[in-house]
Design a protein around this nucleic acid. Structure first.
Length: 482
RNA sequence: GCGGAAGUAGCUCAUUUGGUAGAGCGAUAGCCUUCCAAGCUAUAGGUGGCCGGUUCGAGCCCGGUCUUCCGCUCCA
């Protein structure tokens, strides 16, 4: 309701006002790019996570779920490439105060050179990057007289290393402590457990391992509310397939995941695919499922064909064999035999999905009443299936035995789904409050209820209401939430 | 991270040359009320983001800091 000029700001204000999202440590002025989920937000987030978990593990007999620890052996991040590739050498121009990634700066300069000179420059850069020679990189920039595009000067700071992984120590004695990282992605917890799960679960390829959990990235700039946070939650599934079949599965999951988003109420026209042109070191195909956020089309979920990169890397660093024996017969009538499975990954940001849902749900409505006056409401049209509170039970008056009847209904319904009971204030005001937090159904108990056991059920999205027998309330709400 | 702007009650805002903060909405309790933010009564809630400086005196002036917004940058 706050900022008329910026709809996204209104959503952020609304989230705070109604207990969906608070800034972390707000009491102490907040912590940048870290947020807490409030009483409503935590429930909505849990509902989204549960929907995803069910769609993966319960509805696919060949996908199982695990919950790996955030702390992992430091070598995991060597093997995954994060120690080397997740850190970027940066350099600042002192005159323009522009900051550049060193590789981007040099590559841009190479584009202006003739082919052989460019090749030489880039191979020298690669050598220095691989050797972590930061001083050498600066010398390379200076020798090539590379200039800042803004200030047109070569007045550079030293090259500095930025690592996007958070680190801490394990072991209480500082001198003996080992540095370990907070995981920057959840995927590695699945890869290092590949053999454990495959063997103990007697899994046959193709099969998947799903997991939800927190990951941490020390973003240089993190903004846009919960879109890019330093601590965030991923929901991802690694699907292990026979080498050569990865594109088939890549396309399968591309379709399947988009359909899932539509199944929780995201309109098809608000979703699109975005193919990656420049692929990461581990991928042979990659795309984003993008959603049209209030600030533009942005990644909601990534589908990556990761080849056998991760399992091979872990085999190499752990010196253990990570393979699968495939008994199925090939065209020649022989088993496919031993191989390192290929991986197709689906990875959604739970917080981004949350942001998607609330930015679609948030609506301000205005209309003219019968007496000619203007009326309005703010309503969160969250699909009933994922709404934090499904049903509000409201005695019309708090006397004449109505609260007793309502409490009785409350006791029955709360066994089945999340309910909210309220007897304070005029009925219209209570409806508005339920609209604001996105409760899809309200049931009102009045004097007629005492005579014929019927109640009024009021629908959030249409604001219409009808009378139904009290003993049908549970069924109506439960059906709508399926 | 750089540049610009902002920060007063839960929210939206007032306090017009510096003189120890107010309103509306909201909240809580009660009264009234038979279906979409009605009315009445009472109550709670702010060391003016934080730290320091100038001044007899700072919400207001100055410096620093934190947070947010906008632009740039960044986002394997």
């Amino acid at each position: 309701m706050a900022n008329e000029s910026n709809p996204f700001q209104e959503i952020i204000s609304h989230c705070k006002e109604y207990g969906y999202i608070f800034q972390s440590s707000e009491l102490y002025d907040g912590l940048s790019a870290v947020y807490d989920y409030g009483q409503m937000g935590a429930q909505l987030k849990k509902n989204l996570r549960d929907e995803w978990w069910k769609s993966m593990t319960q509805l696919h007999d060949n996908i199982v779920g695990i919950d790996a620890a955030i702390f992992m052996h430091p070598t995991v991040w060597k093997a995954s490439g994060h120690v080397d590739n997740f850190s970027d050498p940066m350099i600042d121009n002192k005159d323009s105060n522009k900051r550049y990634r060193v590789d981007h700066l040099i590559e841009a300069h190479a584009d202006t050179l003739e082919t052989s000179a460019a090749k030489e420059l880039l191979s020298e850069m690669d050598r220095l990057l691989a050797a972590d020679d930061l001083a050498g990189l600066k010398t390379l920039i200076e020798n090539n007289k590379i200039k800042c595009a803004v200030s047109k000067t070569s007045n550079w700071t030293d090259v500095r290393q930025f690592n996007l992984m958070f680190s801490t120590q394990i072991g209480s004695v500082a001198e003996e402590a080992d540095t370990i990282y907070l995981r920057p992605e959840t995927a590695q917890g699945i890869f290092v457990n590949f053999l454990n799960v495959q063997k103990t679960g007697r899994m046959k390829i193709p099969f998947g391992i799903a997991q939800t959990g927190k990951a941490f990235r020390n973003e240089i700039v993190a903004r846009q509310f919960i879109f890019r946070m330093r601590e965030f939650e991923q929901m991802e599934m690694q699907f292990f397939v026979r080498p050569g079949t990865q594109m088939e599965w890549y396309n399968y999951w591309k379709e399947t995941r988009k359909k899932w988003h539509e199944s929780i109420g995201i309109p098809s026209e608000k979703l699109r695919y975005h193919d990656h042109i420049k692929l990461a070191h581990y991928a042979d195909a990659a795309l984003d499922i993008e959603f049209e956020f209030p600030f533009g089309w942005k990644e909601l979920e990534g589908i990556h064909s990761r080849t056998d990169f991760d399992l091979s890397q872990h085999a190499k660093y752990s010196k253990k064999k990570i393979q699968y024996f495939d008994n199925e017969l090939n065209a020649e009538g022989k088993p496919y035999g031993n191989y390192t499975p290929f991986v197709v990954e689906t990875s959604v940001g739970l917080d981004r999905l949350f942001l998607t849902v609330i930015s679609l749900a948030y609506q301000e409505e205005k209309w003219t009443k019968e007496d000619g006056t203007e009326d309005s409401r703010v309503v969160m049209k969250i699909p009933a299936k994922i709404a934090p509170i499904k049903l509000a039970i409201l005695p019309l008056l708090k006397k004449d035995g109505l609260p007793e009847l309502a409490s009785h209904l409350m006791d029955e319904c709360k066994q089945q789904f999340h309910c909210f009971y309220e007897e304070k204030d005029a009925i219209g005001k209570r409806y508005r409050r339920m609209d604001a937090i996105g409760t899809p159904f309200c049931v009102t108990i009045d004097h007629q209820t005492k005579e014929d056991n019927t109640v009024t059920i009021r629908y959030r999205d249409t604001m219409t209401q009808e009378r139904i027998p009290m003993d049908q309330v549970q069924r109506v709400v439960a059906t709508a939430c399926k």
